[in-house]
């Protein structure tokens, strides 16, 4: 089998862990995986952005009506060239298989999660057009159980600039499922935090008590 990113032959690397425990199979080679930049634990407590304890964007949210809707948050990777390429091929060229590239890391991050895992949804037309939901697919590949609680209203953020994004009102509505107290929201890419803040606010108003977030990439 070849690496799904560089198409060079994959070498199987045995490990003790792999012998005794279940490991999600790797489909990308080490060299390609090393190109992605993991985010260390320091940084903004809401979005892992490098720098102080609370980044500028998150401070804005905290001061403008979204105070404490999110308890804490984490992003796994930075948005470097390798990640941009991966993201483009996965989301826009629709290479579904690439969800597996981060299956192991997502599994490590989520395997012992007690809270209900809630993916950020796509709207129906987008889903039909793209043929798969990129967030669901990441979780499916990592074998993490999840539950949808939200539905996307009409607007999408993709084509908006920064100011427009942060001024957007009401992106989500509830889909009718019961909302538990503890939640973990999952998304693919964190840009300004608009998506997460809006989703968290909608859920908080519906009775959620503690909401944390996890995103694969911090732009």
């Amino acid at each position: 089998m070849n690496c799904c990113l560089c198409d060079q032959q994959l070498r199987f690397v045995p490990s003790w862990r792999g012998i005794f425990l279940y490991e999600v199979p790797e489909i990308a080679c080490r060299a390609c995986k090393n190109e992605f930049a993991k985010i260390s634990l320091t940084g903004c407590k809401f979005c892992s952005k490098e720098g102080g304890l609370i980044c500028e964007d998150c401070r804005y949210w905290e001061e403008h009506g979204y105070c404490e809707v999110i308890e804490s948050g984490k992003s796994l990777y930075g948005y470097n060239e390798a990640m941009k390429d991966w993201f483009h091929q996965y989301k826009f060229l629709k290479d579904v298989l690439l969800a597996q590239v981060f299956a192991k890391e997502l599994r490590e991050a989520l395997a012992h999660e007690r809270a209900m895992v809630v993916p950020i949804p796509l709207n129906k037309e987008k889903l039909h057009e793209r043929s798969f939901s990129q967030v669901d697919q990441l979780l499916l590949s990592a074998d993490i159980p999840f539950q949808h609680l939200l539905e996307k209203c009409g607007e999408t953020l993709g084509t908006k600039n920064r100011q427009e994004r942060m001024a957007t009102q009401q992106l989500f509505r509830l889909n009718g499922e019961a909302v538990p107290k503890q939640l973990l929201l999952v998304d693919d890419l964190y840009t300004t935090g608009t998506t997460m803040r809006q989703a968290a606010k909608t859920l908080k108003e519906a009775g959620a008590v503690s909401i944390r977030t996890l995103t694969l990439i911090r732009a």
Partner: peptide
């Protein structure tokens, strides 16, 4: 099978296959 990959397609609602070999020319499923 390494390049023609099955997946749950939300466009047609069935299990589709898509080709990774020529995906850069626009995905075909």
């Amino acid at each position: 099978k390494e390049y023609v990959i099955p997946f749950e397609c939300a466009t047609c609602g069935k299990v589709c296959r898509y080709c990774r070999k020529c995906i850069r020319m626009g995905r075909i499923s």
